[in-house]
Amino acid sequence: MREFTFGQYYPANSVVHKMDARAKLIITIAFIVAIFVVEGFFSFIYVAGFLVFAILLAKLPIRAVVKTIKPILILVLFTAVLNLFFYQKGEIIWEFGFIKIRDEAVRFCLYMAIRLILLVMGSSLMTLTTQPVELTDAIESLLTPLKWVRFPVHELALIMSIALRYIPILMDEADRIIRAQKARGADFESGNIFARAKAMIPILIPLLVSSFRRANELADAMDARCYSGGANRTKFKQFHIGLNDVMGVMSVVSLIMLIITTNAVLF
């Protein structure tokens, strides 16, 4: 279970790591927009090129980034296969009984697969180069305008950072409970899917109980320190917009413009 490292922070000394987390968040969102603006395979080369450039700039091993698509590979295959059979536009190019495959469907499912893979790799690049705390701070900072409509931005960011912080703790706890129930003869590996689901109950209930206990303890500890939310709080780490951040945002904007121009020329 400890090998679960989906997009976990990968420390390195690079320009991308040092960038303003807000800039990285904006670039990532713009990058996702870019992925969906693309029409025609040619433009995917720009997007992939941008991604590879960013990975190299971040001094990350390509393997670490490619590894992040492993958990969603099944999802990608599943959607691709579904699209292949059920997409109803275009000429039929292959037929077998009730299965009909159309040329548009092939194109569409390839698009979808490439988009999903680029999407996950792009967003993983952000989480690989940004500490979770920085990321929630960035979200808080970017959502600040919503405070005008009395949206609890600070509380939302706090909830997110607490949730992120508790993932490793709960994983340790789950590990302990699994061992304890194994010692009582629990069997998680045999039986059909229902038997296995039922075998999870002795793990899930203690885990749930201990999450509530931890939440209560944390709330008490925060009360004891007179924590009262976002008003008048200062940050230990201040954000600074630098030249690199401006250049990053500019480059992703130019990527989108390049794709739109290509679309206009080709179609």
Partner: peptide, 24 residues
């Protein structure tokens, strides 16, 4: 284990204690 009470899950004490027995 240490703090064994954190592994309790049964609806009743009886169900929880019988867990190991039924498994083995």
């Amino acid at each position: 284990f240490q703090y064994p009470e954190y592994q309790l899950f049964g609806e009743t004490v009886e169900e929880d204690i019988a867990f190991g027995l039924i498994n083995f």
